[in-house]
Simulated scan of single mutants.
Amino acid sequence: MTDPRLSADTTIDSGVPQSARIWNYWLGGTNNFAADRAAGDEVLARIPDIALGARADRAFLQRVVRFLIAEADVRQFLDIGAGLPTENNTHEVAQSLDPACRVVYVDNDPLVLEQAQALLVSTPEGASDYVQADLREPAAILTAAARTLDFSRPVGLMLLGVVNHLMDDGQAQNAVAQLVSAMPAGSYLVLTHSTAEIHGDAMLEVMHETTQRGGTPIRARNPGEIAVFFKTTDLLEPGVVSCSRWRPEDEETDPPTEVYLFGGVGRIQLH
């Protein structure tokens, strides 16, 4: 039987831009290649505030993890499409609040796995594991994650900026539905997705050009299409919104600037 850790492509092609490495570049990281930086710069030239979305998505992750631990009693996280390590990674935020938290990271980029194994070290009381697999392989992901996570207890299912790489609606909805159906009651679906709500045609053109150039395929969905992924959950307030506006922590200031990544959090009930 094939180890799910090895079910995705294990080669690193430094000449083809990859979304996790472009994202790392926008966040100020160094785990990227010239092709990633060139692709990232092309997008920045068209949409100068694109990196603001990357930072807002990371801030959203931190707020959600804190909420799940403090208010929902979640101590396990399955972070799919985790991307390259930067600051405030899921296990760091979670284990800063409860050192016993357990986290499994999943990505299909072999460089992510290589860097994660070297840099993302768990607390002694908790655990972190790293699986190389693709979102299109939910059964393989769940099998590998079960080595670290207890699926009889609530899990925070984190799908941040990854479902937008599944171009087909049916395939995307099926992958998310399979993962959600495997989560125990009291778990939460946390999902963000690229949209064209802020930048309009410029965003759609950049996505099309990135895909045509051979980079990681990517598409936009509108808030209604994103809400479909939460259809079997109890979607928490304020619903599907720009991730910068999901329960911002400083409510005495003006609403945060909207970014192109929209998302939400849904509580998973008994199936």
Rank of each mutant, 00 (worst) to 15 (best):
E197R: 14
P255L: 01
E125D: 04
Q132Y: 07
R221I: 01
P99W: 04
T257L: 14
S7P: 05
H165C: 06
L111M: 12
V241N: 03
G200C: 10
E114Y: 07
R221P: 03
R55T: 08
P248T: 06
A100Y: 05
G200R: 08
N32H: 13
L97R: 07
A177E: 15
D134L: 03
I198H: 09
V163M: 06
E114L: 14
G266V: 09
S128H: 02
L236Y: 04
V106Y: 06
T257M: 12
L191K: 09
A139P: 10
G215K: 03
D3F: 07
L97S: 03
Q171Y: 04
S19T: 10
L120V: 08
A175F: 00
A172P: 06
R245G: 00
G266S: 02
I12C: 06
H91E: 06
R75D: 07
A100F: 02
I12M: 08
D250Y: 07
Y105S: 06
H208A: 15
A175K: 02
V259H: 01
R213Q: 11
V163D: 02
D168S: 12
A82Q: 08
P238G: 03
T30C: 13
A34D: 15
V176T: 02
S96M: 04
P48M: 11
I47L: 14
M203Q: 15
T192P: 06
L204K: 13
T210H: 15
Y130H: 15
L204V: 09
